[in-house]
Design a protein around this nucleic acid. Structure first.
Lengths: 222, 222
DNA sequence: CTCTCATTCAAACGTCCGTTTGAACTATGC
DNA sequence: GCATAGTTCAAACGGACGTTTGAATGAGAG
């Protein structure tokens, strides 16, 4: 049963997603399942069954379970990193940015850009958050490698924006910012599945930014 | 080869720990290994080998892998919960406590009491922090069940101490406090294994408390 | 049609997993 | 001494895991 709908052009302007390839389906399902159960807690069989693919497809398209995770992380982080770089460029071009501007330019791409687009956004966010704090150091480093380039620039800019705080203190605050962002992305902080009226991504972003700005401005040692 | 040293009394006043029982060795190693690799990432075989115990000993003494984890969590959290309750009682007896006093009374038992006593303290802290954010909801709830009783009291007291902030906002800040504490306990925030001069538990506690106090006092919406 | 190359498939590989079994061992009370 | 209850042990259980294999299937080029 040939799945492919039509030979067609690239622009089926009506909403007919060009039929996902096996590779794409694997990445999509991997995002969802890894985000739910973590890396160790999710089997390739569970992923391939849900993706309606053969178990061997993972090793054919990616090479191994870990390579599948790596590909999924890279794909999920790409737009976030791009948007963060863009915002940082823009801020620095306009002169010395404030701490709040920097925090906002870091948090919003992580929460909004990823939480916005309906159901899938929340899945991607949870996936990223989960990988960032996976129990295995190996997995965590795999995630860190995907963010590091942008990170260093933000940390440096923050230290310039907060000259009164000691560099180690700014780094401490920066680590806290990374951690809190990942925690909210992973949704591990919301105990009750419902009732969290902060789950509106816009409100959550504003609350988190206000929380962090106050901490950075007045909670760091000199 | 009978392991037991002597029949002796309970008070071998010199430092001769009465020879750990299999049960105790299993709990100690479980703390260490679960803290390193997470629940899914750590096998009972790895634990029993390290504890010089037979693999069947886990099911004999605890019943299952999950029951071993539960027992380890309960044992690790007991002194923390006790100390938190004691401090909260003391604060409330002296009148309306401030937000800073409450935050300190929550953070310090989590960091200090557990980080103080040499090498083992860091192991226990990492174990607790890891379990608190395990990928599996089941495991996280298992941990939450061990803290919940004290938690509710702290949240209520915080809301009283911060009447100008909306209750949801205080709850939001409270969740952030839990998260940051667990992250520092799990040591997932310190990227480099060394070089973290904040690893001195006392300094870390002070930095974290200052960070949180500023955020609670000025970073919550009305 | 034929050849080619990419993709999919069922099946099996060896390994490790948590758990169970039933016998052996130990200490204590009678 | 014997009986008893608590503990340890080697061995095996069935099942799930990530990975590999080699044949089947698909579409496109000549």
């Amino acid at each position: 049963m040939p799945e492919r709908a039509v030979a067609g052009g690239k622009e089926s302007s009506v909403d007919t997603p060009p039929v996902e390839s096996t590779r794409e389906r694997l990445l999509n399902i991997a995002e969802q399942r890894f985000g739910e159960g973590g890396y160790e807690g999710t089997s390739l069989r569970a992923i391939t069954v849900a993706a309606a693919a053969n178990i061997a497809a993972v090793n054919y398209h990616f090479g191994s379970k870990e390579a599948l995770l790596r590909a999924a992380v890279a794909r999920a982080m790409a737009p976030v990193n791009t948007e963060r770089r863009r915002r940082l460029d823009q801020l620095e071009a306009a002169g010395q940015p404030t701490a709040e501007q920097l925090i906002r330019a870091f948090i919003e791409p992580g929460l909004e850009l990823v939480l916005r687009r309906g159901e899938r956004g929340a899945i991607v966010a949870r996936f990223i958050g989960r990988v960032a704090f996976d129990p295995s150091r190996r997995i965590r480093e795999l995630y860190a490698a995907e963010t590091d380039p942008v990170e260093a620039r933000y940390l440096a800019a923050l230290q310039q924006a907060l000259p009164r705080a000691a560099p180690e203190s700014v780094a401490f605050g920066y680590a806290n910012m990374l951690g809190l962002l990942a925690l909210h992305q992973s949704q591990a902080l919301s105990r009750a599945p419902d009732a969290d009226d902060l789950e509106d991504p816009g409100k959550l972003a504003e609350n988190l930014i206000a929380f962090l700005v106050a901490a950075f401005d007045r909670g760091l040692r000199a």
